[in-house]
Amino acid sequence: MIINNLKLIREKKKISQSELAALLEVSRQTINGIEKNKYNPSLQLALKIAYYLNTPLEDIFQWQ
């Protein structure tokens, strides 16, 4: 199972779901689904999230 800290990191950086979704060219619902662990992002999307949040990938997504 993958645990993610996306919501915590996104809120710490004061970025809304809508703003992050626009940067990543995905829907706000996609961001919401990832934050709620409804599904895991593709590797490409995970890397883009880490890039736009300027945060190491392993700080956002962790195996458990």
Rank of each mutant, 00 (worst) to 15 (best):
Q17C: 06
K12A: 13
N40V: 11
A21T: 03
L53N: 00
S16K: 12
I60T: 03
Q44I: 09
K13I: 07
I60P: 01
N37P: 01
S42E: 08
Q29D: 15
N54H: 11
Y51L: 12
S16L: 09
I9F: 11
L57Y: 06
Y51F: 14
E11S: 09
N5E: 05
S42C: 06
K12C: 09
A50E: 04
E19I: 06
N5H: 08
K36P: 01
A21N: 02
M1P: 13
E11N: 12
K7L: 09
I60M: 07
I34F: 04
L23Q: 13
I3P: 05
K12V: 08
V26Y: 02
L57V: 12
K12W: 13
K48L: 08
K7T: 10
K13H: 11
T55F: 05
K7G: 07
F61L: 03
L8A: 15
K12N: 12
I49D: 00
M1C: 06
M1K: 05
Y52F: 13
N32I: 15
S27H: 08
P56V: 04
S42Q: 06
V26H: 03
L57H: 04
R28C: 09
R10I: 03
N32S: 10
F61P: 01
R10M: 07
N37D: 09
E58H: 13
I49H: 00
N40L: 07
K48V: 04
R28K: 15
N5R: 07
I3L: 13
N4M: 02
E58C: 09
N5Q: 06
L20K: 01
T30E: 09
I3E: 08
N5T: 04
Y51P: 01
Q29H: 15
Q44M: 09
A50N: 01
Q29P: 11
K36H: 14
S16T: 13
K13W: 06
Y51G: 08
E19K: 10
L23S: 13
A21D: 02
Y39V: 15
L57G: 02
S42W: 04
L43C: 10
I34Q: 00
T30D: 11
N4K: 02
F61M: 03
A46G: 09
Q62R: 12
L23H: 13
P56C: 06
L47S: 14
K38E: 15
M1A: 06
L24H: 01
I34L: 07
I15S: 03
S42G: 12
N54C: 08
G33Q: 11
L6H: 02
I49W: 01
A22M: 10
L57P: 04
N4C: 04
D59Q: 12
Y51V: 10
E58D: 14
N4E: 01
N37Y: 07
Y51D: 14
Q62L: 07
A21F: 01
Y39P: 03
W63F: 10
E19W: 05
Q29N: 15
K14W: 06
A22T: 14
T55L: 06
K38V: 14
I34G: 00
E25Y: 10
L45W: 03
